[in-house]
Amino acid sequence: MNNNNNMVEVDARGLMPPHPLAKILEAVAVLPPGAELRARTDWRPIHLLAQLEQRGFTAVTEEQPDASFITRIRR
């Protein structure tokens, strides 16, 4: 996990389900107020989005040219 000012980056690629979900949700739990978390995954995180919504976060997922996905998460 990389922290840079108000940006927290989590690389959850190369992990078997449900480890990417767990890794991102653990990072989200300690996300400072006002910060954004950028999570990189191999697949579109369908299950994550519902969990984030339940916890009061907003998230936008974008596919990258290398076929991975970046999800930007904010409180």
Binding site: P18, L21, A22, V28, A29, V30, Q51
Partner: peptide, 21 residues
């Protein structure tokens, strides 16, 4: 295992240690 884990434990991640699959 995923259905059970997701249904019972996913909402607790980051708040309490949960079992793995």
């Amino acid at each position: 295992p995923f259905l059970v884990w997701f249904g019972q434990y996913s909402r607790l991640i980051g708040r309490v240690p949960v079992p793995s699959l």
